[in-house]
Design a protein around this nucleic acid. Structure first.
Lengths: 244, 244
DNA sequence: CGGAACGGTCCCATCATATGGAACAGCCGG
DNA sequence: CCGGCTGTTCCATATGATGGGACCGTTCCG
């Protein structure tokens, strides 16, 4: 498989910018390339609108073209407009943030999120990627896809909090429970102050292609509500949605 | 200004994919490059996750990486998470779609949209670009930026419907009204069956950096509501938001 | 069932083109 | 006013992108 070097490098630069705006020198260091090369890549990307210079001769950041292009990303965009009204409903019912995610390798990619206005908000995870073993949305994917589950279970399972499932047996056991219930919930397994409940979004043939979830600060979510009741709510909402 | 050819070409391919998935041959035709070159570009982009092949040996479409990268597009993302709760409120109050847009050259770029579930929905404009003279959101930008207004007025003003403002005088007159009111509304000026109301989102120094808008099918929006009353509503909501 | 007409991928000789070291220019803070 | 820091430009070099054509798999039609 032959790949084009300069494109590879261009995306390395873009990715590096995704973790925050930076100047030529810093980027050059991050991606381990000569300054001159990075400068050339950046001015090309700038002409294309993929990055923009915050002020002449200053830092670079990701530009509008990426937004434009991402709008055309089918798996994402169509899912987003399809599910957004349901996210609104779900976040209204629970008072917490609702979102969707899709599998990407052994990670979940967070595609969209609706966060009700409130004193204490969970952060916006849109565009972020989290290993499947650490989040309920990942557990959903794994519970309904045995091959994938095996692959993940064999890979390293790094902890994010003291509660992260990091052993094959713990994970297997959880997946079994999730498979039975049809929904997943986790308390402080990924972030120390965040709890989350998830259920699968199915295509017409029954395969789970994406995940619907609700999450909130551990201090008030699920609060005195029964996690299983919430799980059932999320599942019933997810079951209403058919994705193609 | 030296630019890197292959990156240029890669983005040409991506842009072409933005207008719909396609196979190698078709893309090659669209961008006027040899099949083999396009195939190589695509497999590079695929490895990077920028595109994905819907089925082995089949069509290509834009991939998840673009969503990931776009999430880091500062001007967009931070605005989106800041304004989304207000979009929810606005669409709840009006029963119609609410969205935000930012200026991009002489176009407005639609960044986000919340569409309430309903029998008849306006399409999702997220990621699309529309010339400023044709939409109220554009009128807002122009009304509060004289240089930009002059530039746009001097450029061609193509019609999209019979109601589009296509003459300098008509546009100038409209901008005057908009400037006075602090909000803009337009009936069937861009799409024949769509009406829209907009107001500016201001930074702390008072400059208008983005636009908040509400739009709905002409058949029921604004319906028997007074457009000026709606304008005042959108404006009051926009005034609550401070962007940096 | 055969074969033609697509589709996408791969190969490899050719040379256009990306490369990166070094020199340059602009900006700040001391 | 200078030293150290930016980002940008130059240009000789050879790396690496290129594209015509061969190849292979499907589909569609005779």
């Amino acid at each position: 498989m032959t790949t084009v070097q300069s494109i590879d490098r261009a995306f390395a630069v873009l990715r590096s910018l995704a973790s925050g705006p930076a100047g030529v020198s810093e980027i050059a260091e991050r991606v381990a390339l000569p300054k001159s090369t990075v400068s050339r890549l950046l001015s090309t990307l700038e002409e294309l609108g993929a990055v923009e210079q915050v002020s002449a001769g200053g830092e670079y950041r990701i530009g509008w073209t990426m937004i434009e292009l991402s709008a055309a990303a089918r798996p994402g965009r169509s899912l987003i407009s399809l599910t957004r009204p349901h996210l609104a409903e779900l976040s209204r019912l629970t008072g917490e943030a609702a979102g969707i995610s899709i599998p990407d390798g052994t990670d979940m990619l967070y595609l969209d999120q609706l966060t009700p206005d409130s004193e204490l908000k969970v952060r916006d995870w849109t565009g972020h990627r989290i290993p499947m073993h650490a989040v309920p949305s990942g557990h959903i994917m794994l519970a309904f896809n045995d091959q994938l589950a095996e692959r993940v279970i064999k890979s390293p399972l790094p902890p994010f909090t003291p509660h992260t499932l990091t052993t094959a047996t713990a994970l297997r056991q959880r997946l079994k429970v999730v498979r039975g219930a049809g929904y997943a919930w986790a308390l402080r397994e990924f972030a120390p102050e965040m709890n989350s409940v998830a259920a699968g979004l199915r295509a017409t043939d029954g395969t789970v292609l994406a995940v619907l979830h609700v999450y909130g600060p551990a201090s008030r979510f699920p609060g005195d509500r029964d996690p299983d009741e919430l799980g059932a709510l999320v599942k019933s909402m997810a079951d209403k949605i058919r994705i193609d």
